[in-house]
């Protein structure tokens, strides 16, 4: 053991890390276990409605349920294509968009409730 080790902060005990990791992963798993199983259906139906009006990429949709002590939030994040690209996409085949539209797309911040699905940006 070098004398320098004496001054170095003691490494965090591995047991502490074990506990923290367990607490996080298990909180997640428990929520999933008691969570409603309608989420996949809900996601599909929401998508169908939105897709009627907006051209969206199915891979850029995220539905999340956070169960808190007092209230739970349902969070729906949908990445909308930019206006020009939406037009272009509408003209061509849906879903057949050019690459690199991420920068122009409107990404909704997290933390919204159900009504979050509509973008601020007019399309």
């Amino acid at each position: 053991m070098s004398i320098f080790n004496f001054f170095r902060a003691a490494p965090r005990a591995s047991a502490v890390q074990a506990k923290e990791r367990l607490q996080i992963v298990m909180a997640h798993e428990r929520a999933g276990r008691s969570g409603p199983d309608y989420l996949p259906m809900l996601q599909q139906e929401l998508l169908a409605v939105i897709a009627k009006y907006v051209n969206i990429d199915e891979n850029k949709v995220e539905v999340k349920l956070d169960r808190g002590g007092d209230c739970s939030t349902l969070e729906v994040n949908i990445e909308l294509p930019a206006r020009e690209q939406a037009k272009a996409a509408a003209a061509t085949k849906p879903g057949d968009k050019p690459a690199g539209n991420d920068d122009a797309a409107t990404k909704r911040p997290a933390g919204g409730a159900v009504g979050n699905a509509g973008g601020k940006k007019r399309i």
Binding site: A13, S14, A15, V16, A18, K19, L22, Q23, M26
Partner: peptide, 16 residues
């Protein structure tokens, strides 16, 4: 090993 911080304590497991 628990004393050395290498193993979860009884209390940790009970809490989880």
């Amino acid at each position: 090993r628990v004393e050395k911080g290498e193993m979860l304590r009884v209390d940790d497991v009970l809490e989880i």
